[in-house]
């Protein structure tokens, strides 16, 4: 990837992550992985199960701290941020879509989407109309008041996408968003994800096993042996 594609919104530099194994041994999942994500681009990360794809997402989002290396969000060294500043910046810069959706069962669809604005502290009058607009775009116009329990897997993932995009993050991190969906629904979700990120100008980092979905992104990275061996 080159800088002519825009500013670097997310950068990982020589990131390592080591875990303690059950037998006391050290398991080195990431061994100095480097990656840059530029504004408005999409990037897919592929790799075998256990290769450290999800761990990499956790580390670059600082949900887990790296054993070594540096992470920058919009040019800011994350390790230098205080806990409060880290939470605020995370809400501003990053959006998340997980394989298991993680919707709040007590809240209806609209309330789930609005939750990200509440936490960011940006809940205003137009937040509701923006959330409704996003839900319309993901095809859930008539399901605002439904509880997550009444939705199908595909619908839940679409709610999660709307929630992730409400705060207009610079980067959307999607960890196998189609992993729990059937092929047809997965295609719809991927199309929405790519389309909405493009519309909003958000960068997308997509962790996936599916080569077809990976091929739809601007860039493709292969994680193997704790390093990105190939970035196209």
């Amino acid at each position: 990837m080159s800088e002519d594609q825009g500013r670097c919104v997310l950068e990982a530099c020589k990131v390592s992550k080591t875990f303690d194994g059950p037998d006391g041994s050290r398991i080195e999942v990431l061994r100095g992985a480097d990656l840059q994500v530029y504004s408005g681009t999409s990037l897919s990360i592929r790799g075998e199960s256990g290769s450290g794809k999800s761990t990499f997402l956790n580390v670059v989002s600082w949900l887990d701290t790296p054993s070594a290396g540096t992470v920058w969000w919009d040019g800011v060294d994350v390790s230098k941020l205080s806990a409060t500043e880290l939470s605020r910046r995370r809400a501003e810069v990053l959006g998340f879509v997980f394989q298991a959706y993680y919707l709040m069962p007590e809240l209806n669809v609209l309330e789930n989407v609005l939750m990200s604005a509440r936490i960011k502290g940006s809940l205003k009058r137009d937040s509701r109309s923006r959330a409704e607009g996003l839900l319309e775009k993901v095809g859930l116009k008539d399901r605002f008041n439904q509880l997550p329990g009444k939705l199908s897997g595909g619908e839940r993932q679409r709610v999660a996408i709307a929630r992730a995009l409400l705060n207009q993050p610079s980067v959307l991190l999607a960890d196998e968003p189609t992993g729990n969906l059937d092929e047809k629904t997965a295609d719809i979700v991927m199309e929405l994800l790519l389309g909405l990120c493009s519309d909003q100008g958000a960068s997308l980092v997509l962790v996936t096993h599916n080569p077809q979905y990976a091929s739809q992104t601007d860039h493709r990275a292969q994680l193997s042996g704790g390093l990105f061996n190939q970035i196209l």
């Binding site: 989002s61 949900l63 806990a83 409060t84 939470s87 605020r88 995370r90 809400a91 501003e92 990053l94 959006g95 998340f96 997980f98 298991a100 993680y102 709040m104 939750m115 990200s116 936490i119 960011k120 929630r163 705060n167």
Partner: peptide
């Protein structure tokens, strides 16, 4: 537990 993880992911502080 996972919802608590999500809250942190979308910007919640531990104290919150």
């Amino acid at each position: 537990t996972r919802e608590i993880g999500l809250l942190t992911a979308i910007g919640a502080r531990q104290s919150q």
